[in-house]
Amino acid sequence: MTVRVDGVDYEFSSLEEAVRFALKMAKSKGAEVQLHNGTFHVE
């Protein structure tokens, strides 16, 4: 599972870890999280 934040990809071994990271980053940026074909994008 890959989480992309500001064009940088972060790899996670589990969906749970990836979701937690994506939500944490989105909250800190006041951004939204989108899921596309198994890849999260924080914008």
Rank of each mutant, 00 (worst) to 15 (best):
M1F: 15
M1R: 10
M1T: 11
M1L: 10
M1K: 06
M1C: 15
M1N: 06
M1H: 13
T2Q: 04
T2A: 04
T2N: 05
T2S: 07
T2C: 15
T2M: 10
V3W: 04
V3Q: 00
V3G: 00
V3S: 00
V3R: 00
R4F: 04
R4I: 06
R4K: 06
R4V: 07
R4S: 06
R4E: 02
V5C: 15
V5W: 05
V5I: 08
V5D: 01
V5R: 01
V5H: 03
D6M: 08
D6T: 02
D6F: 11
D6S: 06
D6E: 06
D6V: 02
G7H: 03
G7M: 03
V8Y: 06
V8E: 05
V8F: 06
V8T: 06
V8S: 03
V8A: 04
V8W: 04
D9T: 12
D9W: 09
D9Y: 12
D9M: 11
D9K: 07
D9F: 11
D9G: 04
D9R: 08
D9S: 10
D9C: 15
Y10T: 01
Y10L: 02
Y10K: 01
Y10S: 01
Y10D: 00
Y10R: 01
E11F: 14
E11V: 13
E11W: 14
E11H: 14
F12H: 00
F12Q: 00
F12T: 00
F12A: 00
S13Y: 08
S13R: 10
S13H: 09
S13G: 09
S13F: 10
S13D: 11
S14E: 03
S14P: 00
S14K: 03
S14V: 04
L15Q: 08
L15A: 08
L15F: 13
L15S: 06
L15H: 09
L15W: 13
E16P: 04
E16A: 12
E16H: 07
E16W: 14
E16G: 07
E16T: 07
E16C: 15
E16R: 11
E17L: 06
E17K: 05
E17Y: 03
E17V: 03
E17H: 04
E17P: 01
A18W: 03
A18N: 00
A18R: 01
A18F: 04
A18K: 01
A18M: 03
A18Q: 01
A18P: 00
A18I: 02
V19K: 10
V19C: 15
V19M: 13
V19W: 15
V19P: 00
V19E: 06
V19L: 14
V19I: 13
V19G: 02
R20V: 07
R20Y: 08
R20E: 10
R20C: 15
R20A: 12
F21K: 00
F21A: 01
F21I: 01
F21Q: 01
F21H: 01
F21V: 00
A22M: 06
A22R: 02
A22S: 02
A22G: 01
A22C: 15
L23N: 06
L23M: 10
L23F: 10
L23K: 07
L23H: 08
L23W: 11
L23D: 02
K24W: 14
K24C: 15
K24E: 11
K24A: 13
K24P: 00
K24I: 11
K24M: 13
K24Q: 12
K24T: 11
K24F: 14
M25F: 05
M25S: 02
M25R: 02
M25A: 05
M25T: 03
M25Q: 03
A26S: 06
A26C: 14
A26R: 05
A26Y: 07
A26I: 08
A26T: 04
A26E: 04
A26V: 05
A26L: 09
A26K: 05
K27W: 13
K27D: 09
K27A: 14
K27Y: 13
K27H: 12
K27I: 13
S28M: 13
S28N: 12
S28W: 14
S28P: 03
S28C: 15
S28E: 15
S28H: 12
K29R: 12
K29G: 09
K29V: 09
K29A: 09
K29I: 13
G30R: 07
G30N: 10
G30K: 08
G30D: 07
G30F: 07
G30P: 03
A31W: 13
A31V: 12
A31Y: 13
A31K: 08
A31F: 11
A31H: 09
A31E: 05
A31Q: 06
E32R: 14
E32D: 10
E32C: 15
E32W: 14
V33N: 02
V33R: 02
Q34E: 08
Q34K: 13
Q34A: 09
Q34S: 13
Q34R: 14
Q34M: 12
L35I: 11
L35H: 05
L35S: 05
L35A: 04
L35E: 04
L35Y: 14
H36S: 07
H36D: 05
H36G: 08
H36T: 07
H36C: 15
H36V: 13
N37R: 05
N37Y: 09
N37H: 09
N37S: 04
N37L: 11
N37I: 10
N37P: 04
N37D: 12
G38W: 09
G38Y: 10
G38R: 04
G38I: 10
G38V: 06
G38C: 15
G38A: 04
T39W: 11
T39H: 14
T39L: 10
T39G: 10
T39R: 13
T39N: 10
T39C: 15
F40W: 12
F40K: 08
F40R: 07
F40V: 11
F40G: 08
F40E: 09
H41N: 06
H41F: 14
H41G: 08
V42R: 05
V42M: 05
V42P: 08
V42C: 15
V42L: 05
V42T: 07
V42S: 07
V42K: 06
E43Y: 13
E43T: 14
E43P: 08
E43K: 10
E43A: 11
E43S: 12
E43W: 13
E43M: 14
E43D: 11
